[in-house]
Structures are given as C-alpha cells and as structure tokens.
Amino acid sequence: MTTAPSLAPQAAATRATAAARAVDVWKVYGSGEAQVIALRGVSVELERGRFTAIMGASGSGKSTLMHCLAGLDSVTRGDVHIGATKLTGLGDKGLTKLRREQVGFIFQQFNLLPTLTAEENILLPLAIAGRKPDPQWWDTVIDTVGLRDRLGHRPSQLSGGQQQRVACARALVSRPEVIFADEPTGNLDSKSGAEVLKFLQQSVREFGQTIVMVTHDPNAASYADRVIFLADGQIVDELTSPTASGVLDTIKRISGEQ
C-alpha cells in the first residue's frame, strides 16, 4: 500500500523560518451592542530576517495585530508564536520574560528615561535582565546608528532623530527574535525619519534582524521587503518589494478611491 507523502516536514520548515506568526487570530473588545471585532481570523507568518510593514486605515486592526503578535495584548481566539514559543496561554511571568529576552520595541514616542544618558538608555533592558552586551555587537550597533559621540548625552540634549536612533539601538542591542516598531517615524521630520528607516533596513539586510513595522506612511512602507494591508480586521492584500507609489495605489484600491 502506497502512503501519500507527508507535508509535515515542509510545514515544520516553514514555521522554523517564521520569527512570528498568527494562526486564525480573533480579537474582540466588549460585548453586546458595544462589541468591537478588531481582528477577524487573521493568519500570517512573518519571515525571519525580513522587514515587514503593516498598513491600514484607522480602525483596520493593524496596531491590534502588532500588539497581539508582540505579546502586549491577549487574543480572544487563535494562536500566536514568537519563534518556537507559543504566546497563547503564557502567564504574566512568561510573557514578561519573552518580551524581555525575545522581543524589541520601538514606539512613536521615544520612551527614553530623561535622567539616563543615551548609553544607559540603550543598555537598560539588558541591565534589567542582568545581562551585559556582547562588546563586538555593541560596537557594531553604536557605529551603525552613529551615536558614539552622543553616548554621554541625556535625551534633552539630543535631537528627535537622535533620540529615536537611541530607541532603535536599545531594541537591537539584545539581538531579539523580532523587533516591533509602531509608527517609528511619526514624530520625526522627513530627514530624520529617513535616517531611522535606513537604519532599520540596514539592520535587516546586514545583520539579519527581523522587523515588523506599523505605519500609515506609504514612503515609510517602501523601505520594507513586504507590506501587509488590513481592512476591517482582515488581511486584504500584500506587496513584496514595494514602492511608495505602489503602496499608495493599493491603499486607494482597497479604500475604493479612484
């Protein structure tokens, strides 16, 4: 009797290449007439060593998806994985450990402690975890973000672009499984924003980092390898090797604009 070849090894290989993935994820807030369905059965795999942008109109579910993938919010139904770790069902202690050791964050607000120097802010997550940076990797990160002559400065002595580069270095220095960036250029002028996006792109292409970025800006999304589009809590389209004009055209098509 001939047995059909198993697809399990292929599926396992696919999962092994995913830095993060969601499987049939639903997120529901409230109940009754006040119920809001933010995510409707979303399944997506975010490949290791790639820069993925998530886009959508306000209320599309893009930030909710990122928060669920990063373990910042729980899911109503479905499963979320970071690498080989299943987030669904992890307790507070397990989630805290995962976010500290496997995930990096970059937010629109720089979230730097004003009393600490740039160097101390960058090293803070490692210090909390009782770890020291790898010296060679530290030098690589600092030289890449161009902050060596600013390490002794406090946030108030740095420009907005420099502060966000500190936040980028802080996310990268622990070599996390994946970095989640939520509108990282939202508070920056175009020049500073471009510098941050180029750094994120470089960290993927040269260092193999995995980055997932939520943005509303087609130009910012064009720095990514892949763009995922959400509408009404569902993935409705995606682009690979995107351009700003291609992203804008896709947004217009999804929204019904001519």
Rank of each mutant, 00 (worst) to 15 (best):
G246I: 01
K198H: 11
V204I: 11
V173A: 01
Y29F: 15
K97M: 11
T117E: 12
A20P: 03
G49P: 10
F229K: 05
Q10P: 00
G89W: 10
L172H: 04
F107C: 07
A20H: 02
A57E: 04
P184T: 01
K132I: 09
S159R: 07
D134I: 10
L46M: 08
S241A: 15
C168F: 14
P184Y: 02
S245I: 11
G56P: 00
E47M: 03
T52E: 04
T14Y: 05
V196C: 03
F51T: 00
R175M: 07
K93F: 04
T210A: 01
S63H: 11
T215V: 02
S255F: 04
F110K: 04
M213G: 05
L158M: 13
L188R: 00
D79Q: 14
W26A: 14
Q258A: 10
M213A: 13
Q164I: 04
L124V: 14
T88C: 14
L172P: 03
K93Y: 06
R131A: 11
S241T: 15
R100C: 05
G49W: 00
Q109S: 15
A181D: 06
V36K: 05
G59L: 02
V23K: 07
V141E: 05
G32L: 12
R226T: 12
V166E: 07
R100N: 04
G91F: 08
W138E: 09
S174F: 08
P242Y: 13
G83W: 12
S241I: 10
K132T: 15
G30D: 09
H81I: 09
P184Q: 01
T140Y: 05
R15E: 15
L90P: 06
T250R: 13
M66K: 03
R148V: 04
Q164A: 04
D232R: 03
T140C: 10
D139E: 14
A231K: 06
A129Q: 02
S58R: 05
R131N: 03
A129T: 11
A118F: 11
Q163H: 10
A220P: 09
I254L: 14
A221D: 06
A181N: 01
G256A: 07
D79M: 05
K198S: 09
L39S: 03
I82P: 09
Q157E: 15
L147Q: 09
T144F: 00
G41Q: 00
R131Q: 13
M213C: 07
V75R: 01
P133T: 06
Q157H: 12
Q164K: 07
L98E: 08
Q35H: 08
G104H: 10
D24G: 13
E195W: 07
W26K: 08
L72G: 02
T240A: 14
S222E: 02
R205Q: 14
S203H: 01
W137K: 05
D73N: 12
T3G: 03
A194Q: 15
L197S: 00
T240Y: 12
Q162A: 04
I228H: 01
V44Y: 01
G94P: 11
M213Y: 12
A12M: 14
S43E: 04
V103W: 00
L239F: 05
